[in-house]
Simulated assay, not measured.
Amino acid sequence: MKRAPTALIADDEPLLRDALARLLAQAWPELQVVAMARNGREAVEHCEAQQPDICFLDVHMPGLSGIEAAQRIGRGPLLVFVTAYDQYALRAFEQGALDYLVKPVEPERLADTVQRLKERLQAPAPDAATLLAQLQELTARMQGEGRTAAPLRWIRASVGQTLRLIPVDEIDYLKSDEKYTLVVWRGDGDKTGEALIRTPLKELMAQLDPEQFAQVHRSVVVNLRAISHVQRGLNETADIHLKGRDEVLPVSRSYLHLFRQM
């Protein structure tokens, strides 16, 4: 009897790992998910131990990214990257030996990926030199395109047992909170909400539209569209007042130049 294909799923968000596993069970019932990894290092360890046919790797994971994990995994399994970037930023993923999925994963797109994977499993694997060259090119292009990628459109946040997809346009401000980032947003009917995520503020800022979001303090990024008015303070500082909110956000001296014309 022919052996069933096997897969590994690596994502630092447990809800997203489970969601992808459920979608795969529907799209490819024969596929056996033999390992789940919380980060890139676990992905490498599980891959060495389980020898799966396919690895689904989240691009952005703590410690060791999906790209770095793929380089260490090297020749063997087929690699599918899972990423929050939209398709304009994903030109680097369009390699002969690789595929990608954009979060949130859509069943129709996953079905296409499954079909390609089935075809690839029947074809000869690429040689190690070819795969290494593709991964090196991918890493270089990812680093080079980080500044030109399309702006982030939504942020995922776990609130209890619920995974929320927060549209970036609805965010009023973000605030660094030790190892976390506080995301404060306004939804339908001006209903407000907030959540802590593990992505550092610096990393988020690099993905936001600079025409819409501005860093005004080392620990605060604000949506310019949410500002009601800015009030100057002492010692070359200022306070930002938001539309429909009581919170007052500080503007430090280093960022006061953003509001020189007020």
Rank of each mutant, 00 (worst) to 15 (best):
E236A: 12
P167H: 13
P151Y: 12
A69F: 10
V33D: 03
P151G: 05
H60V: 14
L101K: 10
D172Q: 08
P167N: 15
G74Y: 05
Q50I: 13
E42V: 07
S228L: 15
D169H: 08
H257C: 03
L152V: 12
A214I: 10
A37C: 06
W28A: 07
L20H: 04
Q161D: 12
S158P: 00
T130V: 15
C55N: 06
R156P: 01
A7M: 07
A150D: 08
D112P: 01
R260F: 05
V220E: 02
V80G: 00
D172T: 11
Y173G: 00
K179L: 07
R186P: 02
E145T: 12
Y100C: 10
Q134V: 09
P167G: 14
L132F: 05
R116V: 13
L23V: 04
V216F: 01
A111G: 06
I67A: 00
M262C: 05
Y100N: 05
V82W: 08
L135Y: 06
P250E: 12
P29F: 14
R156K: 10
Q115Y: 07
R147P: 03
D112T: 15
V105M: 01
Y88P: 00
R17G: 04
D188R: 15
D112N: 11
P62Y: 01
A97T: 04
Q212N: 01
E178G: 03
F56Y: 10
L64P: 11
D18R: 10
E119F: 02
M36W: 11
